[in-house]
């Protein structure tokens, strides 16, 4: 475990807590894409299949439980909670995210490190996480006005991915047994690039202290 990895996990944890805080305190999920949240829940479900079979560390297991618990409780809030679900704008959140799931599954069946159920599901979760933010970014473009918490949520998600890339670079040089992991590296890099333009507009809006406006 290195500082970049820990910072990445903490940033990721912050992003889900910011989202839960927003939904729980102001009882609204305006501007949040349910499709992205569904994809994230699927990412965690497919990636953490080994949670009960392989014990790495207490930290690892606790964080997996937190990410699983938070992503499914966000789904519950947005779909079941009588007040919160009324603020979900399904007319705007129209990204056909089913079209993302199947290609990722097919790709995981074709390109993986080992053709076993768990390895294919893990690889599927890596590919799916790379594109999971798309419905949310499309929704932000549509709703144009991005409220602070939503902006912070997406920013923290992008920062977590960026820190993971630095973590991989650090591990490559620091750990002698560390070998190449092209699937994870390329997928993680593409995922982080998706945030690039959002970062540009977000940082500008923070610098100029104006509301975040994404170009149409």
């Amino acid at each position: 475990m290195n500082i970049f990895r820990l910072a990445g996990d903490m940033t990721h944890l912050m992003s889900v807590l910011v989202l839960l805080l927003k939904i729980h305190t102001i009882k609204s999920c305006a501007g949040i894409s349910l499709k992205t949240q569904e994809l994230y829940a699927l990412v965690f479900a497919a990636r953490y299949l080994d949670i009960f079979t392989h014990y790495y560390s207490l930290y690892n297991t606790v964080m997996k439980l937190i990410f699983l618990g938070s992503s499914f409780s966000i789904l519950w809030y947005m779909k079941r909670h009588k007040v919160v679900r009324r603020s979900y704008d399904k007319d705007q959140d129209t990204f056909r995210h089913h079209f993302l799931v199947l290609p990722c599954l097919v790709l995981a069946l074709l390109i993986n490190e080992k053709f076993t159920f768990k390895e294919v599901m893990w690889t599927f979760s890596i590919y799916l996480e790379a594109v999971a933010i798309l419905p949310q970014l499309v929704l932000l473009q549509r709703t144009r006005n991005v409220d602070n918490l939503t902006g912070q949520y997406v920013f923290l998600l992008g920062a977590y991915r960026g820190l993971y890339i630095i973590n991989w670079i650090y591990r490559y040089f620091a750990e002698p047994t560390y070998s190449t992991h092209w699937i994870t590296w390329i997928s993680g890099l593409l995922q982080t690039l998706l945030y690039a333009d959002f970062f540009y507009y977000y940082i500008n809006s923070v610098k100029n202290n104006v509301r975040l406006q994404l170009p149409a």
Binding site: D9, N60, E175, T177, S179
Partner: peptide, 10 residues
């Protein structure tokens, strides 16, 4: 295993 794995990551 000889090579490290990324399964210890989240």
């Amino acid at each position: 295993p000889s090579h490290s794995s990324l399964k210890d990551e989240l």
